[in-house]
Write a protein that binds this DNA or RNA. Sequence first.
DNA 1: GGTTAACTGATACTTAGTCTCATGTCGGAC
DNA 2: GTCCGACATGAGACTAAGTATCAGTTAACC
Lengths: 143, 143
Amino acid sequence: MSDLDLIIQRLELHGHRITASRKRVLKALLDAPAHFTVDDVLRQANDVGRATVFRTMKLLQDLNVVCRVMMENGSLHYRLSTSGHHHHLVCRSCGQVADFANCDVSSLIDQLARSTDYQIEGHWLEVYGRCASCRASEPVVAG
Amino acid sequence: MSDLDLIIQRLELHGHRITASRKRVLKALLDAPAHFTVDDVLRQANDVGRATVFRTMKLLQDLNVVCRVMMENGSLHYRLSTSGHHHHLVCRSCGQVADFANCDVSSLIDQLARSTDYQIEGHWLEVYGRCASCRASEPVVAG
DNA sequence: GGTTAACTGATACTTAGTCTCATGTCGGAC
DNA sequence: GTCCGACATGAGACTAAGTATCAGTTAACC
C-alpha cells in the first residue's frame, strides 16, 4: 500500500471525503522535498484553490499527516509527519530538518510543575544548529 | 533610576537616538499588562506610526528589552524581558505567562549533538498548561 | 440515478509585518 | 545657540499567510 493510499485511508477513517483536489494536494506533498511551505504546495498543485489548500493542510495537521516546523526566521514550514510526538532540529545554514523523538523534557516538566504550580499539558520545542555537512563546508570562525 | 530610564540608557549605550516616538512606545510597554501584542502598543501609543512601532519593537528585541511569547494558537505576544535566556509557561485558560530560566535542556542537547551530528546552537521552547487559579476555578473533567 | 451534506474555488477580507520615500529631528560639532 | 547630517518618522502601498463568505459542485450513500 502506497503512502498516498495510507493517507487516503486515514482520511476515510475520519469520515472525510476523498476529492480530486485533496488527492492533488496529497500528491504535491508526497512529491515535495523534506519540508515545504503552503505556497510550495499551491504552486505544485496549481489547479487547486488557495482556500482549499489551506483547508487541506489544516485537516492533515489534525490527522497528524503533516506537522509544522518553525524556522528560525519565524516562517512556518510543513513536513510529512513520521511519528507521533517529536521535535525538529533545523540547520541554520541549509535549512535541513531532522526529527527527534527521544524528547527528554519530562524531568524539566516535572520540575516546573512543582516549582510553578502549573499543570503542564504540552510543549513546543525547536532546536537550531548546523548539520554535519554544513560544518564541513563552512569551517568555524576562530574565536 | 526608573525602568524607563534604564531602557533609555540601554538604547543610548547602543548608539540609538532617544526620540519622542520611542519614549511613547516605551511608556506604552511599561504600562501594558504582563504580555501584549504589537496591536496593543499601537492602540496605547496611538499617535505613533505603525511602522515606527514595529521598528521599535524589533529594536527592543535586539536589545533584550522585550521577548516574544508564542501563544498556543500561533499568535505572537511580547513581554518585558526580565532575565537573559529563559522560556515561557503559558496558561491555556487565562493566558497568564510565567518565565522560567532553569532551562535543563542541556542534557537533551548533548544527547542530540551526539546522535545527530549537528552542532547545536540554540533552541526555542514554550510550555503550555493550566495555572493554579484556573485549575481551582475549572475543575478537571472526570475521565 | 437521486439526494444531500460535505467540499470547492473565486474573491474579499484580515492580520502581521515590511518597504519606500519625503519630511522631521536628535545630538555632536562648531 | 545654531547648524547639519545621519538617523528616525509616518503615511501609505505592498506582501505574506491565513480566514470568511457563498454560490455552485460532487462524493458517497441509498
